[in-house]
């Protein structure tokens, strides 16, 4: 009886969670210029308008460059830190690791404003690179969390065996360690890419005159006439994120299977 009540609550809660995402495609295909009910009819005009907006293409290109660079940089930095944290004992380890993980518990606006102030005081001009730096800072903790999981699930005797059989530490890393943590690396790349692609505040503060997709979107929200186009864009973005997530989840599960571990939940 109690279980049934909870079940209904869970379903209602899922409706609450999915409400905005379900509305998105409704308005994206709706043949009306206002974002309101009742719906008018089916149209693909808003998607067509996306194709003919050069500013949008520039913003998308900026976002992709930033997201790919951020994903690669954060995963590399995450690999160093995760390997060091799982494999070695060294002085001040909790302090160093804790400090690297700090952006996870810092409101993003603080990260954004402190980076901005430094850039402005140093007289550096804002560009794609300043955004990449900011995004890498907030993505590294996620990369470390994912990679630490893969490194600690790995059987260390495999590496020892490789060294005993005459491989150098470097070739051992390349031939044994890397393939074993590869699912973690791919998951980390995908997660960091997704975070960077969606991140707004840091990009908003640091973008200068090279807007990312969310910054462009933010600018467009002021113009009611542009809203249906934004809905179309949002639909594509949501589809993309969900696709990336399912891929990341697939690799995470494969990694667990490869390590012979039971599935114990999601990313976080």
């Amino acid at each position: 009886m109690k279980g049934r009540g909870l079940h209904i609550y869970a379903l209602v809660y899922l409706v609450f969670l999915y409400a905005p995402i379900v509305l998105l495609p409704l308005f994206a295909f709706n043949d009306g210029t206002t974002i309101a009910f009742p719906l008018q009819g089916f149209t693909l005009d808003w998607f067509r308008a996306l194709v003919t907006t050069p500013a949008l293409h520039e913003a998308t290109l900026n976002s992709l460059i930033i997201a790919i660079s951020t994903a690669v940089l954060s995963t590399c930095l995450g690999l160093f830190a995760a390997r060091a944290a799982t494999r070695y004992r060294f002085p001040a380890k909790p302090v160093i690791v804790g400090f690297i993980m700090l952006p996870l518990v810092l409101p993003e606006i603080i990260v954004a404003i402190s980076l901005l102030v430094v850039m402005l005081q140093l007289g550096l001009s804002l560009s794609i690179w300043t955004i990449i730096a900011g995004h890498t800072l907030i993505c590294v903790p996620f990369a470390i969390a994912i990679l630490q999981g893969s490194f600690s699930n790995m059987d260390r005797s495999l590496e020892e065996a490789s060294v005993d059989l005459g491989e150098t530490p470097l070739t051992t890393f390349r031939l044994v360690t890397l393939p074993l943590v590869m699912p973690g690396i791919i998951a980390s790349l995908l997660i960091c890419f997704t975070i960077s692609l969606d991140e707004f505040i840091i990009a908003f503060f640091l973008s200068g005159n090279e807007p990312t997709l969310p910054v462009y979107l933010w600018g467009q929200l002021r113009f009611p006439a542009r809203l249906p186009v934004i809905m179309a864009l949002g639909t594509i973005l949501v589809g993309l994120s969900v696709g990336l997530l399912i891929t990341a989840e697939f690799f995470r599960r494969r990694g667990l299977r490869r390590a012979g571990l039971p599935d114990s939940g999601g990313f976080l």
Binding site: P20, D198, F200, L217, W218, V238, L245, F267
Partner: peptide, 11 residues
């Protein structure tokens, strides 16, 4: 539960 969280925050 986590899927909606990964979609564009602004939107």
């Amino acid at each position: 539960i986590t899927i909606p969280f990964w979609t564009s925050y602004l939107i």
